[in-house]
Design a binder for these strands. Structure first.
Lengths: 222, 222, 222, 222
DNA sequence: TATGAATGAGCGTTCATTCAT
DNA sequence: AATGAATGAACGCTCATTCAT
């Protein structure tokens, strides 16, 4: 999570010095990400990707056996570090989970804000429904790890009296859903608040409600 | 070589298989919905739709001028009743909006529970990138009506002191996002709670948190 | 029914039949000219052209963006040399125009005599109604250059006293029409003089009448 | 030929008084002529013809077995009376043929001027190249009768010393070609003199040249 | 007779993938 | 390793023709 490569570009590349600068697969993925994000998966032609990557159509097939493999590679590349870093934090936690939830949502929000920092998840939101393999892969690599982690956190909080008596598995949807919907409205329908995407404000607003909503019923927490 | 291919159309006619005019546009839309939901818009061939509807390829074009029009017809059919009924309720309201929000979410939940209740929205999300008109249409017909209505409701509630001081436009995401995410997790990623889809329980759980979260500040939350 | 038709593209690839890049655009145009002349534009399938050219359907689109572009390419190829060479001769002229007219008709006649000499013009007439761009293109590139040139020549001759007082614009039809009709009768209706096409004799006979008909009035004709 | 119906509409119809006014085939041909003339044969759909004729698509097939038969019917209807009347005049002639030629061209010109009077020949000019049957039929019914008749006239004139020593069969092209080209330029390419179609002036101008050109070489004719 | 809903072969074009160089 | 010309299956849409009514 710390030294594990600040830019994700060089993951899984063996340093064999052949002719060129040696980052072909990643250049291709960069090009694919840009175009898939811009125009969607299906309308993007392999030739477009090749041109964007500055290589020939055929060269792509030296690294990726099919167009779908490109999308899968994209997700694999982006998904591994993200999931791990976030989940470590959650798994290590003890005590009142509300601050962690706050931290988690803030962390995700700041990831979303960065340029292309959230491009792949946004792509998944758009394309998962159309490309089942994507859905499966994203589910296995991200969702099946993240959701139970947060649910466990909430369950802990309920048991410890930090959180009102709610169903942890369902509450996860209340925790994450608003942020998810915010991004989806923007990505799919181009709908964003009047002042801009404003992810920070969205998270703030959501946290205000969430914290109050999750707080134990009686008086103050604990 | 001289008289080659004079009229490819006149050869080998097999006796046609005729049927009466009961394949109404609705039957075609049913077939289209089934296949689009199952395999997606682009991979579904017009001939598939025709076969599913029990008619010939050309017959579809008697009722719909293009494949895209089929998708649009699907949305229009699903969209009109939903939007109207829900929005009337909201528009007519005065006073504490929390009960209305509860009612709205319950209403949406029960609509989603029905067979194919979420098929069209999912289709819209799936295909929005590939067929932008679809996204625009759904946005104009549904989202641009529903979101402002709920936001207005919340704004009223804030002014009337029924609701904590929140940003109405952003709060809409907190209200609707969880339900939406619940359904999408199920439909796209195949993820549902251990006990089944349980939309009612999801709504209950969400409402518990939401009502507490939106209630005016009595003491100090957090 | 569940996994129906996931990817129709990946099944049953037979080893392709490859060929080197000698199928230049000209080969394609040759094939197209042959088939268009034989069967007409509309009844000729792109696949027919491809087969005739010894390449695949898709390869044609490497060189021509559409079927119409094929027809346009055909015309452009045939038209450029003809127009230029003939018109230069006319434009440079001063003095008695009758020898030039004689030369012009002889030149056109010899061009028409060659193999496929009239194929493109006939094609243009044939398809003008169905593909209006063709008519416009031929008009702009050939007719609108040639007719005014000859008309100007005649006008000059009238002014210089070399030619009887006739309307130049209409006289062009008398000059060119007979040759044109001769070829069209042959090509379209299969009608030719008993002794064969005999273009040279046609031109001779026509010139005899034309020269006498255009000569300035000495006594009283009629 | 006399009492046999002055307007060509009812040819070949048996007077069985069924439901309607009884001129269906001719109404259909009228509609077809209008549309074929306007947009060409191929782009005109059978349904267009039906609508124009005020009947249903299927009804056309009660009278004409195919689209091509429509075109053939059109030509057959128009061709028979025209050819006969013009050729009678020519066949009956003795003596100087130049006045007859003048009369013939004038007659054709006036036919061309009339509204739709020349629609079918114009259609043939456009479509003969694309629909071989049309070419054949028109050749047999019109051209093979007209050309030899005029050629015979010219041959007579040459023998009688009224006309310069020319090849009659080739001279026919000089006689008719200009008028033909005038119409073709207009029909196919939309090219007409600045003052309008001006057929009369075209014929006048052409006749001026033709008469002088055909006159015996020595002094004035006769 | 007449209708017009229905048919279905047909075709232009696209593009993921292959492979000779 | 790299190219890009070539392939060919696929699919949306048209329209002449048919036939149940």
């Amino acid at each position: 999570m710390s030294q594990q490569n600040p830019n994700r570009r060089d993951i899984g590349r063996k340093p064999k010095f052949r002719r060129r600068a040696e980052a072909r697969p990643d250049d291709i993925l960069d090009a694919a990400l840009k175009l898939f994000s811009l125009q969607g998966f299906m309308p993007t032609r392999m030739e477009d990707v090749a041109k964007e990557a500055g290589i020939s159509k055929g060269a792509i097939y030296l690294y990726f056996p099919s167009k779908k493999a490109l999308l899968e590679g994209l997700i694999r590349r982006a998904v591994v570090p993200v999931a791990d870093s976030a989940l470590e934090m959650i798994a290590a936690h003890r005590g009142d989970p509300l601050p962690v939830i706050r931290k988690f949502l803030t962390m995700v929000a700041s990831a979303v804000k960065g340029p292309d920092g959230f491009a792949v998840p946004k792509l998944v939101i758009r394309e998962a429904a159309a490309v089942p393999e994507i859905a499966r892969m994203y589910r296995e690599e991200v969702i099946d790890k993240a959701l139970p982690a947060i649910a466990g956190l909430i369950a802990q909080g309920v048991e410890g009296g930090y959180i009102r008596n709610v169903d942890p598995e369902l509450t996860v949807r209340t925790v994450v859903g608003p942020l998810f919907m915010h991004v989806l409205l923007d990505e799919v329908f181009g709908i964003r608040p009047d002042e801009g995407l404003a992810i920070d404000r969205l998270v703030d607003n959501h946290l205000t409600i969430l914290m109050a909503g999750l707080a134990p019923e009686t008086g103050g927490a604990r």
